[in-house]
Design a binder for these strands. Structure first.
Lengths: 127, 127
DNA sequence: AAATATCTACGATAGATTTCGTATATGCAA
DNA sequence: TTGCATATACGAAATCTATCGTAGATATTT
């Protein structure tokens, strides 16, 4: 039980953009966020500065315009998010979570196949 | 897209107890929470009062000591939690979520069977 | 070079959440 | 019945998060 990645709602929005685009200036992140939400530029800037203090991102300050990069990976965040809801609402049952997920958010046929293939890895390998 | 169940962190802790135990007094909930965290009795009380205002719980006030009951079900909260992480860290891919969940939190053989059976429901029904 | 645009830094505010202290009511025991 | 334990109610502080305005530095344009 080492790392607790717990970005806030606003931080997650920013991480999304960084994950999708890789290296980004504050302006780039802000433009992207402004598509679905309207808040000021300095709001995004401030959040990203705080994320830097927290170690969620790193930045290159050699030029006037700083360039940011996510330090937490999407996978890290996924694992944390899963751990959290598993330990709270799902009382630790992975199977419950999986079945709920498949039940309410219908997967496509190809996704279902992918999952089945994945499961087959665990099919008593040494029979 | 009807209901957004978004209990806070503290509210979730309380809901846990109510889901596990059913009807509870503030004292009972507090004792349980105090096992893993130390905060005062009135803190728990206040939170539960707020949850009552928000409609997350109901309470019987006929006796001096009030008895609380969750109004949100665990399933409601599960659905909300899943929706949320699907739309943020998992970019809408149920398959990614499922595979991640199975990958990091190994399921037992019987759980795997349960999931496979579940998936078979969707096997091209009209061949 | 002067005006304009763009950037970072930073303080301040607003709102939500958590925390607690204190007042007051109620039940129980000596 | 007097005192003690335990409840609820409620206001207020402490924290966190998000938001923005403004100052000052650095480019860019004319």
């Amino acid at each position: 039980m080492s790392n607790e990645i717990k970005p806030t709602e606003g931080e997650l929005e920013i991480l999304q953009v960084l994950w999708d685009k890789g290296l980004c200036t504050v302006r780039e992140v802000h433009e992207e966020i402004a598509k679905t939400k309207d808040s000021g530029y300095t709001t995004t800037l401030k959040l990203m500065q705080i994320m830097h203090e927290k170690g969620l991102v790193e930045r290159n300050t050699s030029a006037k315009t700083h360039v940011y990069k996510a330090l937490v990976t999407r996978k890290d965040a996924q694992k944390s998010a899963l751990d959290k809801i598993l330990n709270t609402v799902f009382t630790g049952s992975t199977a419950d979570l999986v079945i709920q997920a498949l039940g309410t958010h219908r997967a496509s046929q190809s996704e279902i196949e992918a999952i089945k293939n994945y499961l087959n890895q665990f099919e008593n390998p040494e029979k």
